[in-house]
Simulated assay, not measured.
Amino acid sequence: MSSVQFLQSGGSWTYPENSLPVLRGTDNRERLEAKPGQDSVLIGGGGGDHVVGAKGANTFKYEKASDSLSNEPDTIFNFNPKQDEIDLSEVLQENGITAIHIQNELPKNVGDVQITHHGFGVSTLNMKVTHEGPLFSVRVDNVKLLPEHINFYNSH
């Protein structure tokens, strides 16, 4: 990716009982980095964040559609398709979406999902979550993102 800009590190770690450590971002654009060798959950919050995975199983979790919009999407770096996942279950639940439709064209109806792969190693996930407003969107650097990398309905 040639247009990567430097973002200040941000977020704060919490350690919920009986759960993985969580790095939660703010509504500012920031860089959130997982700790190497530690399974964790990364929640970007608003703004076009750079969310960076590390060795260990990383869950890139989105709680609200406004966490990553098409006009300022998050970019996920170091995504390991063998053990990491993007968790969209709360976004779907928040918007009452009970069925998704993966398709090749830009989403038109609520529940439509498009995953595109660009020749320079970036995948983009776009999802229509409301009738109006921008699409939920997230970019994944250097990975061919597939539907099985996404947790739509808290199935894990």
Rank of each mutant, 00 (worst) to 15 (best):
L106H: 13
E30V: 06
Q93I: 01
N109G: 08
D27H: 12
T59D: 02
S40N: 09
N18R: 12
P21K: 08
N78F: 05
Y15G: 01
L20Y: 09
S70E: 11
D39M: 02
A54C: 01
V113M: 14
E85D: 07
V52S: 00
S40K: 13
I43L: 14
G37P: 12
N95R: 13
N28F: 13
D49T: 08
H50P: 02
E85L: 10
G111V: 11
K61W: 13
Y62Q: 07
K55Q: 06
F79S: 00
D27T: 14
G25Y: 10
T98V: 11
D67R: 04
G96H: 13
V51Q: 02
Y62P: 03
N80D: 15
D84L: 04
S19F: 15
N104E: 15
A54H: 03
N28K: 15
V91G: 04
H50V: 03
A57P: 13
E94T: 08
H50M: 03
G46H: 09
E33F: 00
F77Y: 14
A99N: 08
D27K: 11
F79R: 02
T75M: 05
E17L: 14
S19R: 13
S70D: 10
K55S: 15
N80Q: 12
A65G: 15
G10L: 02
L7S: 14
A54V: 01
S89D: 00
N95S: 08
R24C: 03
S19E: 07
D87L: 11
R31V: 02
K64W: 15
N71Q: 07
R24V: 05
T59P: 04
K64D: 09
E90P: 00
N78H: 13
R31G: 01
A54Q: 05
T59N: 09
D49F: 08
I76E: 03
K64S: 10
Q83H: 05
L106M: 15
A54E: 06
L20C: 09
G47Q: 07
L32W: 12
A34T: 01
R31P: 00
N18W: 06
G53T: 03
P16G: 03
E33Q: 04
D112R: 09
R31A: 04
R24G: 11
I102P: 11
Q103Y: 10
S89F: 00
K55C: 01
E90G: 02
S9Y: 10
I102N: 09
N95I: 05
N78T: 08
